[in-house]
Design a protein around this nucleic acid. Structure first.
Lengths: 149, 149
DNA sequence: AACATATAGTTGACTTCGTCAACTACATGG
DNA sequence: CCATGTAGTTGACGAAGTCAACTATATGTT
């Protein structure tokens, strides 16, 4: 399969654009979140048993990065870190009410931005797009739980 | 258009996977390049009139980042920085022979990785994928030359 | 029970990326 | 000649990412 431009270039550019657009829209709406923090909050949405190790696997970041990012979310009173009742090594991360409300706003903005960026494309095209991203992740041979072994 | 997962999440994950895979393959082949450096070299491929400002626009990075990255490419003897003959403000960036050979190897590896990650997808799907990425960039309303105005 | 091994979290050191503001040198148009 | 714009450079700083070591707890084996 020949791409007109290298895959890394295309993905990198698009990612950069999305990141810049999203953070500037967040700022415009007085939402003090980076894309990375937003992705963390999304993982905590409507769940109560998420640990930092889970985030490290799902977001594919070193657990030390996750730790520090969670620390700043704690400082901002957006999440709380509670010891797991069964396994004392684990800490469960839970959204505060403030965090939940912030996330709802952020999700709305993110969805609007997606609509804006995907405007003019057919459903078929967007579905293919999604399928390709999915396939890339599957072809990478990385299961969610084998990141940073 | 509804995506199963937020666009930022999908793009971020895929980008991360690609980046990690590519740099580890580079390492395995003794190629001392990050994805960022690779993308810079791609822009210099078979061209002689590329300036740092051009790179800043095309790669959408602040010119100070480009400057420092070019500096380390200079240290590695991969590119040279020559004053432009007409406009004395500009500096042209040119691949050395070493840089050219390195780039050829890197391109090969990058192409193989793309093939590996896109395996099992139809040409139609990959074309849609490319079109969607293209459209996102167009819908973002950013022209190449208005980055960091 | 004692032991080795594995997992979750934490910390420190260090590099690179990204942002921003200020600055120099040169170009261009009135 | 002067105002304005552009290309490159520098410094400061915060955030992201890498890596290795460490603590505490859990789990499996003999």
């Amino acid at each position: 399969m020949q791409l007109p431009k290298p895959l890394g270039h295309l993905l990198g550019q698009t990612m950069r654009i999305f990141k810049h657009k999203l953070t500037s829209k967040f700022k415009a709406n007085n939402i003090d979140l980076s894309l990375d923090f937003f992705l963390i909050l999304l993982q905590l949405y409507n769940r109560e048993d998420v640990t930092q190790q889970d985030l490290s696997n799902q977001l594919q970041r070193d657990k030390s990065i996750v730790l520090r990012q969670v620390n700043t979310l704690l400082d901002k009173r957006i999440v709380v870190r509670l010891p797991d009742k069964i396994d004392k090594r684990k800490k469960n991360l839970i959204l505060t009410q403030k965090g939940y409300e912030l996330l709802l706003e952020a999700k709305e903005i993110s969805r609007n931005l997606s609509d804006e960026l995907l405007a003019g494309l057919s459903e078929t095209e967007v579905n293919s797009f999604f399928k390709v991203l999915q396939t890339i992740q599957e072809n990478s041979g990385l299961e969610e739980d084998q990141w940073y072994c």
